[in-house]
Amino acid sequence: MSEDFYDVLGVSPDASADEIKKAYRKKATEYHPDVSDDPDAEEKFKKIQKAKQVLTDEDKRSAYDRMGHDRFEEAEKHGFDAGQAGGDPFGGMGGDPFGGGMGGGLGDIFEQVFGGGAGGRRRPRAGRDLRTDLEITLEEAFEGVEKQFSIERPTECDSCHGDGHPPSADATTCPECQGRGQVTQVQQTPLGRVQQTTTCRRCEGEGTLYSETCEDCRGEGYVRDEVTLSVDVPPGIRDGQTLRMEREGAPSPEGGPSGNLLIDVTIADHDAFERDGDDLHFDLPISFPQAVFGDSVSIPTIDGTVEFDVPSGTQSGETMRLGGKGMPRLRGRGRGDLFVTVQVVTPESLNDEQRDALEAFAEAGGDEIEIKDGFFDRIKRAF
Rank of each mutant, 00 (worst) to 15 (best):
G95F: 04
G105E: 07
C177P: 08
G68W: 09
R247Q: 08
F5V: 05
R238A: 09
R321C: 03
K52G: 01
D57E: 04
Q53T: 14
E76Q: 11
G221R: 10
F114S: 11
F361A: 13
C157R: 06
G240S: 13
A51P: 04
F110R: 05
Q182T: 15
L134Y: 08
T155Y: 01
D337A: 11
G120Y: 00
F90S: 06
T173S: 13
R202P: 01
I267P: 03
R153T: 15
T56H: 05
M93T: 15
G101Q: 11
P13R: 15
M1D: 11
P328V: 13
G334W: 11
G95C: 01
V292R: 11
A118S: 13
G91V: 11
S298V: 14
E3G: 06
M245K: 03
D7C: 00
I286K: 05
F142V: 07
E204R: 14
V11W: 01
S296V: 15
D170N: 12
S312N: 13
A357I: 14
S296P: 03
P124K: 08
A85Y: 00
G95V: 11
E42Q: 15
D38C: 11
G240E: 08
G179L: 04
L209E: 07
V233Y: 05
R123I: 07
G277E: 09
E368L: 00
Q148T: 15
I109K: 07
E3A: 08
G83I: 14
A15G: 07
G334Y: 10
F376H: 06
V292G: 01
V113G: 02
A362R: 06
L130A: 12
